[in-house]
Simulated scan of single mutants.
Amino acid sequence: MIKTDFNIRINGEPFHCTQLMTVYDLLSYLGVDCDVNIIEYNHHILDLNKLKLVLLKESDEIEIITLVGGG
């Protein structure tokens, strides 16, 4: 049985999940644009296809990295 009420960390901050979802579902819920951000899941960078396949579970860590250019 998969636990559907669990805690993860997003950019080091606690986040409580109340349903089973993929990394992509979570990012969509948060309004994160996956085309302009790099997503790290448990210290591994995920491409867009993987975001839609990986199910979140207790104690997962998500880092949302935004690249900023300058000159």
Rank of each mutant, 00 (worst) to 15 (best):
G12W: 11
I38S: 06
Y41P: 02
G31A: 10
C17R: 06
M1F: 10
N42E: 09
G69T: 03
M1G: 14
I10G: 01
Y24K: 12
R9F: 11
I65N: 05
G12M: 13
I10E: 04
D5Y: 12
F6I: 06
D47H: 13
L48H: 12
I65E: 05
S59A: 14
K57D: 11
I10R: 02
S59R: 12
G71D: 00
I8N: 00
G31E: 07
D60V: 01
E58P: 00
E40A: 01
K52L: 03
H44C: 11
E58T: 09
P14W: 06
E13M: 11
G70T: 05
S28R: 12
L30G: 06
Q19V: 06
D47N: 15
I10W: 04
H43E: 15
I64P: 01
F15Y: 15
E61M: 04
H44F: 10
C17A: 06
P14M: 08
N37T: 11
V68I: 12
Y29S: 15
P14A: 11
K3V: 07
F15D: 02
Y29C: 11
F6V: 01
R9P: 04
K57V: 05
G69S: 08
V32F: 06
F6S: 04
N7M: 13
S59W: 02
K50G: 00
G70P: 03
V54Q: 09
L56Y: 06
S59K: 15
P14S: 13
Y41G: 01
L53G: 09
I45N: 09
G31L: 11
P14H: 08
G70I: 02
K3A: 09
K3C: 10
H44Y: 11
Y41D: 07
F15M: 08
Y29M: 14
L51I: 03
Y41A: 07
T4C: 04
E13Q: 15
L27H: 05
T18K: 13
D60N: 08
N11D: 15
E63H: 01
D5S: 13
G69C: 03
L27C: 00
L48S: 10
G12Q: 11
N7W: 10
E58K: 11
G71E: 04
L56E: 08
V32I: 13
V68Q: 00
D5I: 09
G71I: 02
D33M: 05
M1W: 07
G12D: 10
